[in-house]
Computed example of a mutant assay.
Amino acid sequence: MPKIDVNGLAIDYELIGDEGGPPLVLTPGGRYPRDTAGVPELGAKLAEGGYRVLLWDRPGCGASDIAFTAPSESVMNCEALVGLIDALSFRNVTLVGGSAGSRITLMAAARQPANVRQIAIWWISGGPVGLAGLAWFYCGDQIAAASKGGMEAVVQLPSWADQIARNPRIRSILMAQDPDAYIATMQRWGKAFAYSDESPVPGMTAQDFARLTMPVLTFRSGKSDMAHTRETSEWVHRLLPNSTLVEPPWGDQEWNCVSTFPVDPANRRGRFERWPLLAPLLLDWLKA
């Protein structure tokens, strides 16, 4: 699969659909790669709807490189997305994403609002406990490992196994880090997830939201979803100048259910496997 240099990082990506179709970027969540169950399936449906769909591995995900110079992991990822869009000469682009992908979508759009035609977002991470969980999920195990066994312990973490298998350079990049500096970076990156009463999304200010005047489709989170709280989705909707708030194509317990699904790429199982259900709603709205 092709890779392209963005900000000194090799970014793995795939384009599907008619070359002449309007460009659309689909960004998944977690540290999951672009071929995670449900992501390419949704991408294929959007491509069938006439879009030129970009699937990509964010830095530190899948087969892409990673660096530790950005103020936060989210900033690293959104700047990579902006650079990727520029490198591919995408104009008047549509951005869609779920979970971490919704955060990266919003942050990238705020950096180039004039080049973004429409946005669709779902499973927006938020809430005090939800964001605290992200800080541990992304940074806590890294700090614990580095403090106990240095970078050798970090590269042995299950959280890096898939990336290292896909891109052996990840191991070399990690091993080249000074353990104390790495712990300090993870502390900063963890702090970037801190809950604030000023904004529902870490890395986004009220002024950032105000710049997003393009049409946005915001899917309301389930009341039972403590990782992507309902209040977060409704708060984002209120801050966006031109947002349409809609119900998702699944029930209230969706996240609680899919978070128990096995990660089984061979049998196309995982947390995002039901994302293709979004396609009809997305296409109807995007083409309205």
Rank of each mutant, 00 (worst) to 15 (best):
M1G: 12
P2M: 09
K3I: 00
V6G: 01
N7Q: 11
D12G: 09
L15G: 01
P22N: 14
P23L: 10
L24E: 06
V25P: 13
G29Y: 15
R31M: 07
Y32N: 13
Y32R: 13
A37I: 03
G38K: 11
V39Q: 08
P40M: 10
E41A: 07
L46G: 07
A47Y: 06
L55G: 06
W56N: 02
D57M: 03
P59R: 04
P59W: 04
P59V: 03
G60F: 08
G62E: 02
G62N: 02
S72E: 08
M76D: 14
N77S: 10
C78H: 15
A80F: 07
A80E: 06
A80R: 09
L81T: 11
L84M: 06
I85M: 05
A87C: 10
A87M: 09
L88M: 10
F90V: 09
V93K: 12
L95N: 08
V96G: 05
A100E: 09
A100G: 08
G101Q: 05
S102M: 06
R103C: 04
L106W: 11
A108M: 09
A110T: 10
N115L: 02
V116A: 01
I119N: 04
G127N: 07
P128S: 11
W136K: 09
F137G: 14
C139P: 04
G140V: 05
A145G: 00
K148L: 15
G149W: 08
V155T: 05
V155G: 01
Q156H: 03
L157W: 06
P158K: 10
S159V: 13
S159Q: 14
A161Q: 15
R166L: 14
N167S: 02
N167F: 04
P168Q: 08
R169V: 02
A176S: 14
A176V: 04
D178G: 13
D178W: 10
D180A: 15
I183V: 15
M186A: 13
Q187M: 09
W189Q: 04
G190M: 03
D197H: 02
S199L: 00
V201C: 01
M204Y: 00
M204P: 00
R220A: 09
A227K: 00
T229I: 07
R230T: 04
R230A: 05
W235N: 14
L239D: 03
L239Q: 14
P241L: 12
N242Q: 11
S243R: 03
S243H: 05
G251M: 06
G251E: 12
Q253Y: 07
N256D: 13
N256H: 08
F261L: 11
D264T: 12
P265Q: 12
N267T: 06
G270A: 13
R271N: 10
E273A: 12
R274Y: 12
P276S: 10
A279K: 10
A279R: 11
W285N: 15
